[in-house]
Structures are given as C-alpha cells and as structure tokens.
C-alpha cells in the first residue's frame, strides 16, 4: 500500500525534527558539558537549527507533493493525529512540572530552558512515531 500524502508528511516532519533539533542537542550538550551557562550563547545555534529545519521541511514536502497526489486530510488522519497527541503530550507536561520545580530550587535558566526544549522535542518525536505506527498497523 503506497503511503498517503499525510503519512509522507509525518515522515518528513519526523526526519527533519530529529536531524535539526538532534544536531542542536548534540552541540548544546557539548557546550553545557564544557560549562557554558550563559543562555544567549545558545541563541545563534538554536536559530540556525530552526532555519535548517524549515528548509528541510519545505524540501521534504516538495518531494512528497511531486511523488504523488496530495489529497486532503480525512477522518482517519484526524483520528490518528488526535490519538498520537493524546499519548505523547504527557511528556511535555512532565517537562513543564520539572522545570517549575527546578525554578523553585534555583537551578540555572540554561538548564531549565533546555529541559523544556528537550521535552518538547521528545514529545513531538513520540507523536510523529506513534502516527507512523498507527498508519502502518491500523488505528
């Protein structure tokens, strides 16, 4: 069974997110390890990662459009998205609660910001992965 445009789009989003933000976390991890705790030092790296991700997303979706007919979303696509989001959003909630707890204990902002970003990243990756599983195995 050939993949629908929606499924291809999910593959593109998963790949671009993992590549761009994965690279960000790899470099930021090294920076944190070497003791750089000034948050502004991470801003250029973050901006570059987002720009790269947007470029990859545009290129990936162009390829997806050219490789087959782009149908609109239907009820199955909406159900799959809703179900995947409902099973993955707890990760971001855990990140927010941990960040609030870290603030209370006076942890440096750079750690809190990266904790929030990491849980957002993991939550999105989990949602995309679940959507692919539901497309392949059924929902």
């Amino acid at each position: 069974m050939g993949a629908s445009f929606e499924e291809k789009s999910v593959w593109v989003q998963l790949t671009c997110t993992v590549l761009a933000l994965g690279a960000y976390f790899a470099v930021a991890g090294v920076m944190l390890w070497s003791g750089i705790t000034a948050l502004p030092a991470y801003v250029p790296l973050f901006i570059v990662s987002i720009v790269v991700m947007v470029i990859l997303l545009i290129a990936g979706h162009l390829i997806a459009v050219l490789s087959g007919k782009a149908e609109g979303r239907d009820e199955r696509d909406r159900l799959i998205e809703w179900k995947a989001e409902s099973y993955s959003s707890w990760l971001l909630g855990v990140g927010v609660l941990t960040a609030v707890t870290a603030m209370i204990f006076g942890i440096e902002n750079v750690w809190i910001a990266h904790l929030l970003l990491l849980t957002l990243f993991l939550s999105e990756v989990m949602a995309f992965t679940l959507r692919i599983v539901y497309y392949r195995r059924g929902v």
Binding site: S4, E6, E71, E75, D77, R137, G138
Partner: peptide, 16 residues
C-alpha cells in the same frame, strides 16, 4: 476520503 483510508477500511485496520 483518501484511497489509503479505503484500503485500511477494507483490510480491517480502520473502522470508519
């Protein structure tokens, strides 16, 4: 709906 959704319904992978 999309052709893939019809395929999933036929194969019992999705209940419409």
């Amino acid at each position: 709906v999309s052709r893939q959704t019809v395929n999933a319904i036929e194969g019992g992978k999705y209940f419409p």
